[in-house]
């Protein structure tokens, strides 16, 4: 699966799962997931992302602190999914 396709799927899943009132067109691969400059996700959303990765990509994260850098943007998250997920070829 191409990275751009993974980014598109992740974007849709995050917006749906996290109930974000955001136009997907305004979210780019490099938009920050956390903080006011990006999608504005909070600590509960971080946990929700952990569940999303487990549910959709069979990626189990024990300690969210360990994957902080991968949660920076959609692009870094897609890289992480492509590297770790057994269900994304």
């Amino acid at each position: 699966m191409e990275k751009s396709a993974v980014i598109d799927v992740l974007k849709t899943q995050i917006i749906q799962q996290l109930n974000l009132d955001i136009d997907p067109k305004t979210v780019t691969a490099d938009s920050y997931l956390f903080g006011d400059a990006g999608l504005g996700l909070d600590s509960i959303d971080a946990l929700e992302l952990v569940v999303l990765l487990d549910k959709n990509y069979d990626i189990k994260i024990g300690n969210p602190e360990d994957v902080k850098e991968h949660f920076k943007s959609l692009s870094t998250l897609a890289d992480y999914v492509l590297e770790k997920s057994p269900v994304v070829a």
Binding site: Q17, L18, N19, I44, D45, L47, E48, V51, D54, K55
Partner: peptide, 11 residues
């Protein structure tokens, strides 16, 4: 087999 509690719902 599909045990995925949502933190955002749980709060």
């Amino acid at each position: 087999n599909a045990h995925f509690p949502s933190p955002a719902v749980f709060v």
